[in-house]
Design a protein around this nucleic acid. Structure first.
Lengths: 104, 104
DNA sequence: CTGAAGTGATACCAATTGGTGTCATATATA
DNA sequence: TATATATGACACCAATTGGTATCACTTCAG
């Protein structure tokens, strides 16, 4: 289900984390340095982001690097595209109607 | 802020409502007929969707029709496009590096 | 006018969420 | 080996959230 992904994006702190990860992969310590909250809180956010497949974690010694997972954004993009296509079609239908009413 | 928009999309019931509204504008009664929950609960969801500018409401007699607001999806699309562009650029940079290492 | 239909608003409740504090574990480093 | 560093895992708490029940208000129809 993509519910975990949508939910992960619902929190502003988590979206900020994703933006930061766009610049560079970061450890929990790196991330929590940028926020006025404990590492435990950041860890929870990272767990939610991982559950939503928006990030991946790779261990390196005692550090664990969090990195963006581009593929994780696909469900969101797909969901949006449903509406985009819908509006495209509706626009096309409107065009057809107009052309039938007043053929040029 | 687009936080209200992201938050609105975080709930599966609200996303289902949006999908239903793609087919046709609906009153609260229409919507709540489709879910196993009270009208009051549906009303709350619609309020959140309206706060996120994802729907608009127009009164018609004693009925109030809820309709999709295509423009409301823009913040989400824009936010996603930031990452899309980022990955495009990163891919381009990678290509540059490869071409420099092994000029064809 | 009277009653039914459609809705808004509020109080209330259980569950979830975002946060802290604390302790345990694993890994570098002196 | 001893110690500091980086992290994970809980237990716990306040605030938010999704839901219900209930009452008031507006509008349509007889």
């Amino acid at each position: 289900m993509s519910q975990t992904t949508f939910r992960a994006l619902g929190d502003p702190t988590r979206r900020a984390i994703l933006t930061m990860l766009a610049d560079q992969d970061m450890t929990i310590g790196d991330v929590s340095d940028q926020f006025d909250m404990t590492r435990a809180a950041v860890k929870k956010h990272l767990t939610v982001l991982e559950a939503g497949h928006l990030i991946t974690v790779r261990a390196q010694g005692r550090e664990r690097y969090n990195a963006l997972n581009p593929d994780g954004f696909a469900p969101i993009r797909d969901w949006l595209s449903f509406f985009d296509h819908f509006w495209d079609d509706r626009l096309a239908n409107l065009k057809d109607v107009l052309e039938k009413e007043d053929p040029s």
